[in-house]
Amino acid sequence: MPMTQFAPLPFVSIADLDAFPAALEHGVVAIGNFDGVHRGHRAVLDIALSVAREAGAPAYALTFEPHPRSVFNPDRPVFRLTPAEMKARVLAATGLNGVVSLPFTREFAGIEAEAFVHDILRGQLKIRHAVTGYDFHFGRARRGTPGFLEEAGRTDGFGVTIVSPENDEAGEAVSSTRIRAALAEGDIALANALLGYRWSVEAEVRHGDKRGRDLGYPTANLALPPETGLAHGIYAVRAEVDGRWIDGVASHGRRPTFDNGAPLFEVHLFDFSGDLYGRRMRVMIAAYLRPEEQFDSIEALIAQMDRDSAEARAALASLVPLGSVDLAVNGAAAGGGGDGDGGA
């Protein structure tokens, strides 16, 4: 039975320890990078939530921004599955009460493991219990191992749970690395299955060469971060516009029929007209249709675009939610037809 009754809190996102709310003190913290907040991460989060319910305490995530690998290798930034805003959105969907995103710098990485525990976990957050994955390390020279954290908990009087790897139905470990590899191969079905929700990209709509309009397929053009490792090709998508989801088809690639230029993510929304320039747009990727290819004529390209659109409509019409997190993150886009003008 819980020792105290804990009233639900609105989800809070905190980037400054000085702003840490008293309402989350003496809580249960899940610690990790959580890029993707995939099914493996959610095994950690679910245990944190379970421990918190038993104790009548709040539960929240402690994570780090930017990704540590991007700090140590700035010339080779990590392909982020969930930038900070999207990560917070998915964490909120799991039922947590909040997320603390600590700024990760080389100076922060040099903090001794003992100081991380005593000054941050106990001193500022006043945790009652920590939950981490089996491979979580922290502190200078990565001295803070799971075993180190368990011993610190015994010494300082807080609980610690270390979570084993989460495997998928085929017995393979669920990991961010594996999801990035699936996206790079165009295996959207596998990536989404490992995430437990449908993956999305988000960027500002920029002006293009207006070529799609001349072809009868006007597009909203998004320049994704250069490290984005999504396979070049054609995708069935849903885009969020003014709070409603509109079905569409997207091309990610270099446009080999025309200029073979820098990669661009171009989204054609079905049955939609409107000015989207300068606005941020989130696009949920539902299915991979085919690789990018070069065509010998504009007529051949348009004929293929017609076929792509029909295939995208069919794929989108048959969607079903991947689970409660998919429903919470993607709302009406998680299944069936879209809820706007572009619904299939």
Rank of each mutant, 00 (worst) to 15 (best):
L269N: 02
H268N: 09
R42I: 00
A236K: 08
A312S: 15
Q294K: 15
R178F: 09
E65T: 12
A115K: 09
I31T: 10
G95I: 00
L9K: 15
V71P: 12
M86V: 00
A231F: 08
D16N: 10
A231P: 12
N33I: 14
R80H: 06
L224M: 11
L81S: 12
L301V: 00
V174Y: 08
M3P: 05
R280W: 13
L121R: 07
A170V: 00
F270S: 09
R279A: 06
F104Q: 12
A310R: 15
A193K: 03
D306Q: 15
L125Q: 05
D326Y: 08
V163K: 07
D135G: 10
Q124F: 10
E151A: 15
E166N: 05
D75E: 07
S251F: 02
F72Q: 08
E240D: 11
N221D: 02
P218D: 01
Q304M: 02
A303E: 15
Y134V: 12
A231Y: 13
L322P: 06
V205I: 05
A48S: 09
A193Y: 06
A239L: 01
H118I: 01
I120Y: 12
G159T: 02
F11Y: 15
A7Q: 03
V117E: 10
F79K: 01
A189G: 10
P68Q: 08
A191D: 05
L230R: 01
R80T: 13
D46C: 07
F158P: 03
E292F: 13
L194V: 02
G340Q: 05
T94Q: 07
Q5A: 05
W199L: 01
P165L: 14
E169S: 15
R142P: 06
T4C: 10
P291L: 01
P68M: 09
H252C: 05
D247A: 13
F295P: 14
G229S: 13
H67G: 03
G248Q: 06
R39Y: 02
P226D: 06
A23V: 01
E266Y: 08
D46E: 11
I302T: 15
Q304H: 11
Q5S: 06
R122N: 14
S164H: 14
Y134M: 11
I188K: 04
G27A: 13
R89E: 15
N260C: 01
L230W: 10
I302D: 02
A88V: 04
G123F: 07
T145Q: 10
A61K: 02
T161I: 02
E185I: 00
D326R: 05
V241E: 00
F265M: 02
H26I: 00
G144Y: 12
G331R: 08
V283P: 13
A193I: 00
E85M: 14
D119A: 14
A152T: 08
T132I: 12
L17E: 03
A312M: 14
A203C: 01
T155G: 04
L322F: 10
P165V: 08
R142D: 04
D168F: 09
L319R: 07
I120C: 03
V90N: 07
V51K: 12
K210D: 00
N330I: 03
R254Y: 01
